[in-house]
Nucleic acid binder design. Structure first.
Lengths: 240, 240
DNA sequence: CTCCCTCAACTGGTATGATAAGTTGACCAG
DNA sequence: CTGGTCAACTTATCATACCAGTTGAGGGAG
């Protein structure tokens, strides 16, 4: 039997939040325009005002609306105000389609961060971290035929590097990126296959971590990531 | 008379959110432990339950607590779950003191992103963007004696590059970083002065944008940022 | 006529109490 | 040990007040 998953339950405020967020991100609610009053929203959405307020608090935190006591809430320009945590909802629209521009943006960000993450991990790392990485590499060797498994292991490899880097900014950014990846986890597998099969450079990173050689770690990571980026570029060619 | 600022008014749910967030980030509320019930919290904090719920919704979105209907909410490990938007509250504690480890992390992240931002802007850019950058450079030349003004202009320069890069991931990450910077805006001015006065490399970036020369833009940005990083490292030495 | 004040009619913010729905653990029957 | 029932928690939702800030229309003073 296939793995069972918890049934997804969505709270009312969650639904309201997602619906409003979507309308804002799609531009259906224009920046600087006023949001309907809370009372009007609660009536239009057929929920109580508390649910609307909870949703709006989340929109406020996400930087999508500005709140002002006494006046209507206003839509903010998310490109200027939102943080990296908005990326997942930009990558896929309501129908589940991927936005290729956003995907390209993510690949560029990956290329920027990965080498420095590897370098930082190499500086901080040492034998303990290297051993864990090597254990993962061994598992990868045995999963050559199982691409999904390989994908998962490569992800674990990077997570380990990120944690090992001891850099909280990298780690938080990685978390944000992770939430974005899961949206496209399956879709990215095939285009990224060349990178997933490039164990050689991952080995080089692990070796560099063991040797505390930041420079080698950086170049190996750059080479590794560049494989995926080129492959993805090729797959995306012709999409605008 | 000094510039007046709007008095800051904080809603109840805002206060509750900040207080709980602080306790979680400081480890006072341990990961995987249960949050007091909403009713208990509203009584302990002497606010109505709606305010507590609004705060908890925000904590949930920030990845700091897991919400479960019927059971107590539980604290999550923010290092594994939170996104980049948490960085500001990690940088300064409740008393306003900066965390130097976090500051170092931010400097590393800056070093990773800036060169790629400049490169992407150079690829996309062209004369229009270059003209705007050059206008900023001219203003900088006239603000040599006014360090705060210079700091603000250099920031604008980078913002322009980020927007010009056309990369939404870079832009959102920049927004998150910005919210972090403002917390330490004044404190960072002196340590970063050597970087702020390094107009030469900024000129090189602008020229590279005009020439659509991504490679030159990248190296100039790297050189520029590295000046600040080295200066900050020096200023932070001995703080560990 | 213009200016300024007042106030009513919006807006969001807070408070309270009731009810529905989900979780947990104790207990008991088979 | 298994499965069922139930009581005592919890969060989720709802309805209805009332407080507080903002805005603009209207009326009176100059």
């Amino acid at each position: 039997m296939a793995a069972l998953e918890p049934v997804s339950r969505q709270s009312l405020s969650e639904s309201v939040f997602l619906q409003l967020q979507d309308k804002i991100v799609r531009g259906e609610l224009a920046p600087d325009s006023a949001l309907p009053s809370e009372r009007a929203l609660s009536e239009a959405l057929a929920v109580n005002r508390g649910a609307v307020r909870e949703a709006i608090k989340r929109l406020q935190q996400a930087g999508l609306v500005a709140v002002r006591h006494g006046g209507n809430h206003t839509i903010r320009n998310y490109e200027d105000e939102a943080g990296l945590e908005l990326l997942p909802s930009l990558l896929v629209d309501a129908t589940g389609r991927l936005d290729v521009d956003v995907l390209r943006s993510i690949m560029a960000m990956r290329s920027a961060l990965a080498p420095e993450i590897a370098a930082a991990a190499a500086e901080k790392g040492g034998a303990t971290l290297a051993a864990k990485l090597e254990a993962l590499l061994e598992k990868m060797r045995r999963s050559e035929r199982d691409l999904p498994q390989l994908q998962s292991l490569v992800f674990d490899f990077w997570k380990m590097l990120v944690v090992g880097s001891g850099n909280i900014a990298f780690r938080l950014a990685f978390n944000s990126m992770t939430k974005t990846y899961v949206q496209a986890w399956d879709a990215m597998r095939a285009p990224l296959e060349p990178e997933l099969r490039d164990i050689r450079n991952l080995r080089a990173i692990a070796a560099a971590v063991r040797a505390r050689d930041a420079k080698s770690a950086r170049t190996a990571a750059r080479r590794h990531i560049e494989i995926g980026r080129a492959a993805m570029d090729k797959a995306l060619r012709g999409y605008k």
